[in-house]
Nucleic acid binder design. Structure first.
Length: 111
DNA sequence: GCTCTGACTATTC
DNA sequence: CGAATAGCCAGAG
């Protein structure tokens, strides 16, 4: 695992988990944070915002299955490209992630 | 080394 | 059901 600019364990952990998420699957910020033993859901998003370079940040969504703020359009393009299960919803973005199908964790054996 | 900010979450009004 | 508040952690200034 390459060491990123921040060099902090937290950043490294976030990067490791996000990079582990398979194509077409997503994790919530809370789940990602919980995976490495920290509840900093906000911090996870911050790491992706500053150090999200080269990372599939769109595979990390909020608790309700909503994409990151301001990046809903870009995120949707990736979801459509990867075939991520999306569901029409009365949200400002007009859609949300189907956590029931796309929901994933490092423990999940499904490809 | 302290303070503010933020790609969040859960609870309450 | 939508808006507001509080709690949370880490990075940047």
């Amino acid at each position: 695992m390459a060491v990123f600019a921040a060099g902090g364990d937290y950043t490294e952990a976030v990067v490791a988990v996000v990079a582990t998420i398979p194509r077409g699957r997503v994790m919530t910020y809370g789940d990602v944070a919980w995976t490495f033993g920290r509840a900093g859901a906000r911090a996870v998003g911050m790491v992706l915002r500053y150090h999200g370079e080269g990372l599939p940040w769109w595979r990390v969504v909020r608790a309700g299955g909503h994409p990151p703020r301001g990046l809903s359009i870009e995120a949707r393009a990736h979801y459509d490209e990867e075939g991520t299960p999306l569901v029409p919803a009365p949200t400002p973005e007009g859609y949300r992630i189907d956590l029931g199908l796309a929901g994933w964790t490092p423990e999940d054996e499904r490809s």
